[in-house]
Write a protein that binds this DNA or RNA. Structure first.
Length: 653
DNA sequence: AAAAAAT
């Protein structure tokens, strides 16, 4: 059954109370009316949340089912062969909230309550790792189901905590001497030996002489030809002069580079994470740390500010998420009020898009939950009520986007004064014009001297202002060897006549695999989705003109394979993980090299092969060459006309 | 240009 079919059945009101009364049908109550045409039906109803894989937002004391929303989105990586971190992709099974494995389980298209109710335990077969929990620990499916009576909020954490053995078994770690990692009787892996002492490692220093980065063909930006608008097509882009500040932004930060080989054999426990969290990570498919995780976790646990750069899909979410939870836990040790009703959040994770915030929550929430901490999502495009309700009940970690957080904070409904850990995911983007203002306002409201963590695949000097203002002596980490040679992504450029673009796009999108198409504007994204659809290719678009529910549904349909092509603006460029995107097609080349890297990073994940095809009209050739050079990417250029064999070959990937 | 606030 597809959403499409079910949608019309959704005549029934789709209210929040529905949470308590799941039926096999209610998955059909897809919020049709909440789509753009603006029905009265509340968006983000429980069904929809369910359908969207949310559920994290526990309505009225209900405990979200982790099996449902606990899917980590975290990004897979390549293999050891490459210089980066790695492990078998299979080990990272639950990597995504939008994954295929999820589809295979008939996951995404069933309402959660349905699953919990009349469906046999999914976990038994699909997620054997669950069994690693003691038998006394209820299966997640049993523990939380949407149809059980509302549970008082107060009870939640206790239960979570109480009936799992783990915490007590945790090797006695003295939180008093916190900064010290407790290696106990663990095999002396001498992690520290391999790492330079903290003081020796490169620290962020804005005054440090710039370091030229390896063999990266650094351009002298002052020499860079000023955007020669002359050679560009007279129509579109005239309004978008590239801001010159970009030149500064491109500066890379010097960082402590961690080699994949450095972390071999290491465990999350070695890094200082507690048993519950380690176990939860294993359930999420993270059995041992990737390089960026091994690099940053100890520093995060020590309480210091951290800048982390790991390429797309290198596990950044866990790199900050897991130690954040561990640290909150340590800080609250012995505090009786830690689960007080209405407590103000103590950690905040900011992301540039709502979908990404959601995805982060899918990873962080189960980790937090494993130690009795709660997360909630605060982002725009959805009604306030549920978010406010969660805040009123009390929450430990807020994950969201700047606008709504700023909104609630400014209006006194979100108290950030107890936030002692703040994360900026996609930090370079969050420090750019447009985001910097709300972000700094939010940072201003957090506890003074709080810990700050900045992560991005393209972390660069663009974060300098924020760093100087809000961070103290941050450690800077990156993963060694993250170059194109170690990537699983192949880059191709098709040089064509502007007038052939749409036809070539249709041919490219015709193949079997999932195609993620990027367009520069919302209107063009919309137009291309229609174009593909008319050509018989199931396509959806996702961009900022759509309601949040439509965005979410489009993404989900793409992840589920109900549509084979998703045409997106850059809303989907960063962070979003969808399993098995075979081809990223750039109908428009981006203006900025970082955008290219992020868009490209939607494929080639989990060590799989991925291809990025950029359609370039001849008059944009030079500009695209420069862009690729900046991105340090070598691509094969092929002049094409519609019908060329190479197009079909790429489409079939 | 896009994104991110508007119950």
């Amino acid at each position: 059954m597809s959403y499409d079919k079910r949608a019309p059945q959704g005549g029934k009101k789709n209210t929040t109370k529905k949470v308590g009364g799941p039926t096999a049908k209610h998955r059909g109550y897809k919020p049709e009316a909440d789509s753009a045409r603006g029905g009265k039906k509340p968006r983000w109803s429980s069904e929809q949340r369910v359908a969207n894989g949310l559920g994290a937002e526990r309505p009225r004391g209900q405990r979200p089912e982790r099996a449902e929303d606990g899917r980590p989105n975290w990004e897979p990586r390549g293999k050891d062969a490459r210089n980066t971190v790695e492990r078998a992709p299979a080990a990272r099974k639950r990597d995504t909230g939008y994954g295929r494995d999820r589809d295979d389980r008939g996951y995404g298209d069933r309402p959660r309550s349905d699953r919990a109710g009349d469906r046999p335990h999914r976990l038994a077969g699909d997620r054997p790792q669950r069994h690693s929990y003691g038998d006394d620990r209820p299966r997640r499916d049993d523990r939380a189901r949407d149809d059980r009576p509302a549970r008082s909020y107060d009870e939640r954490p206790r239960r979570e905590y109480g009936d799992r053995p783990a915490r007590d078994e945790r090797p006695a770690r003295s939180y008093d001497d916190r900064p010290r990692r407790d290696y106990g009787d663990r095999p002396q892996r001498s992690f520290d030996d391999r790492r330079p002492s903290r003081d020796d490692r490169p620290r962020y220093d804005n005054d440090r002489p710039r370091r030229e980065y390896g063999d990266r063909p650094r351009r002298d930006y002052d020499e860079r030809p000023r955007r020669d608008y002359g050679d560009r097509a007279p129509r579109a882009e005239q309004h978008a002069p590239r801001p010159m500040v970009e030149d500064v932004v491109l500066e890379r930060l010097e960082a402590q580079a961690t080699l994949a080989s450095d972390v071999e054999g290491m465990t999350f426990g070695d890094l200082g994470l507690g048993q519950n969290i380690v176990r939860e990570l294993a359930e999420l498919g993270a059995t041992s740390p990737f390089a960026i995780q091994a690099a940053t976790i100890p520093d995060v646990l020590s309480g210091g500010d951290v800048l982390g750069r790991g390429r797309t899909g290198s596990g950044k979410t866990i790199a900050f998420g897991a130690p954040l939870v561990e640290r909150l836990l340590r800080m609250q040790a012995g505090d009786n009020k830690r689960r007080e009703f209405g407590r103000a959040p103590r950690a905040l994770i900011l992301a540039p898009t709502r979908e990404l915030a959601l995805q982060i929550d899918r990873t962080v929430q189960p980790i937090a939950r494993s130690v009795g901490l709660f997360t909630t999502q605060i982002y725009g495009g959805v009604p306030y009520a549920r978010q406010l309700g969660a805040l009123e009940r009390g929450v430990d970690i807020v994950i969201g986007t700047p606008g709504r957080i700023q909104d609630l904070s400014a209006s006194g409904r979100l108290d950030l004064s107890n936030v002692v850990i703040t994360v900026l995911d996609e930090a370079d983007h969050m420090c750019e014009l447009g985001f910097a203002e709300p972000v700094t306002e939010i940072l201003d409201r957090t506890a003074e001297g709080g810990q700050r963590l900045l992560f991005s695949a393209t972390l660069d000097k663009g974060v300098a202002d924020i760093v100087d203002r809000y961070l103290k002596d941050p450690a800077v980490h990156e993963v060694a060897g993250e170059d194109q040679a170690s990537s699983t992504i192949e880059h191709r450029v098709l040089l064509l006549d502007q007038r052939d673009k749409q036809e070539v796009l249709i041919e490219l999108a015709s193949g079997p695999g999932k195609k993620l198409v990027f367009a520069r504007t919302r209107a063009f994204a919309e137009q291309l989705a229609d174009l593909l659809d008319d050509a018989g290719i199931r396509a959806e678009s996702i961009h900022g003109d759509l309601t949040q529910s439509r965005r979410q549904r489009a993404l989900e349909k793409f992840a589920n394979g109900r549509v084979q092509a998703l045409v997106a603006t850059d809303v989907a460029a960063r962070g979003i993980h969808v399993d098995d995107v075979s081809l990223v097609i750039q109908a428009d080349a981006p203006d900025e090299y970082k955008a290219y890297l992020h868009r490209a990073g939607r494929t080639g994940r989990a060590g799989k092969e991925g291809t990025v095809v950029t359609l370039v009209p001849r008059n944009r050739r030079r500009r695209t060459e420069e862009l690729l050079q900046r991105a340090d990417i070598v691509a094969e250029w092929t002049p094409v006309v519609p019908g060329d064999e190479i197009i079909r070959e790429l489409a079939d990937r």
